[in-house]
Amino acid sequence: MAEVIRNATVEWKLTGKDPAVVTDNASNMTVAVELTGYQHIRCFAHVLNLASQRALKVPALARLIARVRRISTFFHRSTAAANALKINQRMLGLPHHKLITDVAVWWNSAYEMLARFLEQQPAICAALLSPEVRKSTTDICTLNETDISNAEQVVQALKPMLVATNIMCEEKSPTISIIAPLHSQLLSDTTSSIEDSSRQRDQDHHPPRPVQAI
C-alpha cells in the first residue's frame, strides 16, 4: 500500500510538494502512510463514526437502546399496538409519526430511534396500557423515569455528533479547513452537555429544601 501511495504521488507530480494523505483509521492504512513519510490526516467523518459507535457500546447505553428497540419493533409488528398509537397521538396532539427502529451499521439511526421515542413517549405509554394491546402482550412495558432521563441525556449528547456528521456529508469535496471549527464546536457542545448532566444529577441527589414561613 505504501508503494501504491508513492507511485500515485509520482504520477500526480506531487513528490516535491510535501503531500498529505487522508485515509480512514484502519491500521494498515496508518502503517502504509507512516512508511511513506508523508503527513497523515485521518478522515474526520470516520473518526466521528467510530466515536459514536463506541459510545453506543457502553453497556448501560446498549441496554437502554435494546429496550427502546424492543418497544419500537413491537409497534411495527402489532397492528393493534400501531392503531392504539395512532389513536393516542390524536388524543394527545402529537405528530403522527411512526416509531423508528435502529440499524446496527448506522449509529445515527440509534439517535433517531431514541429521539422519536421521546417525542412519542406519552402516546406509547398510553397505547401499551390500552386493553386492546394488553390482550396481545403483557411483557412489553415503557421506560421508567430514570430511563427517560437517561435517553434524553443520550440524545442531547449525540446531537452535536449528528450535526457534525451531516455537515461533513453535505460537502461534496470537504476540505481540511472545515475540521477545526467543527472540532472546536464539538468540544464546546459536549463539554456543555457534561456540565448540564452533572448539575442535573446534583439537583436530583440534593433537592432544595422547602422554605418555611416565619
Rank of each mutant, 00 (worst) to 15 (best):
M1R: 14
R6G: 03
R6S: 05
T9F: 11
W12L: 09
W12G: 00
L14G: 01
T15A: 09
G16P: 05
P19K: 10
A20H: 12
V22H: 09
D24N: 10
N25W: 11
T30I: 08
T30E: 09
T30Y: 08
V31A: 09
V31R: 09
V31K: 12
V31D: 07
V33I: 12
E34N: 06
T36V: 05
T36I: 07
G37L: 02
Y38G: 01
R42S: 13
L48H: 02
N49K: 14
L50M: 04
L50A: 01
S52V: 07
A55N: 02
A55P: 00
A62G: 04
L64H: 05
I65M: 00
A66I: 00
V68M: 13
R69D: 01
R69G: 00
R70Y: 05
I71T: 00
S72L: 03
S72G: 13
F75E: 03
F75D: 02
S78Y: 11
S78L: 05
A80L: 14
A80V: 12
A81V: 05
A81P: 08
A82S: 14
N83G: 00
K86Y: 10
I87W: 12
N88V: 03
R90D: 13
R90K: 10
R90S: 11
G93Q: 05
G93T: 01
L94S: 11
P95R: 10
H96F: 09
I100D: 01
T101D: 04
T101G: 08
T101Q: 15
V103T: 03
V103G: 02
A104Q: 15
A104Y: 15
V105Y: 15
N108C: 03
S109H: 08
Y111M: 01
M113G: 01
M113P: 09
A115K: 12
A115S: 11
R116W: 12
F117Q: 02
Q120Y: 15
Q120F: 14
Q121K: 08
A123L: 11
A123C: 10
C125S: 06
R134V: 05
S136M: 13
S136G: 14
T138R: 13
D139F: 14
D139N: 14
I140P: 06
C141A: 12
L143Q: 02
S149T: 04
S149M: 04
N150S: 02
A151M: 04
V154M: 09
Q156K: 05
L158H: 04
P160I: 01
L162E: 06
V163D: 03
A164L: 05
I167M: 13
E170F: 07
E171C: 06
T175F: 08
I176V: 07
S177F: 09
I178S: 11
I178Q: 13
A180V: 04
P181C: 05
S188Y: 10
D189F: 02
T191R: 14
S197P: 01
S198I: 13
R201L: 14
Q203C: 11
H205A: 09
H206Y: 14
H206E: 07
P207L: 12
P208E: 06
P210Q: 07
V211Q: 13
A213Y: 15
I214G: 09
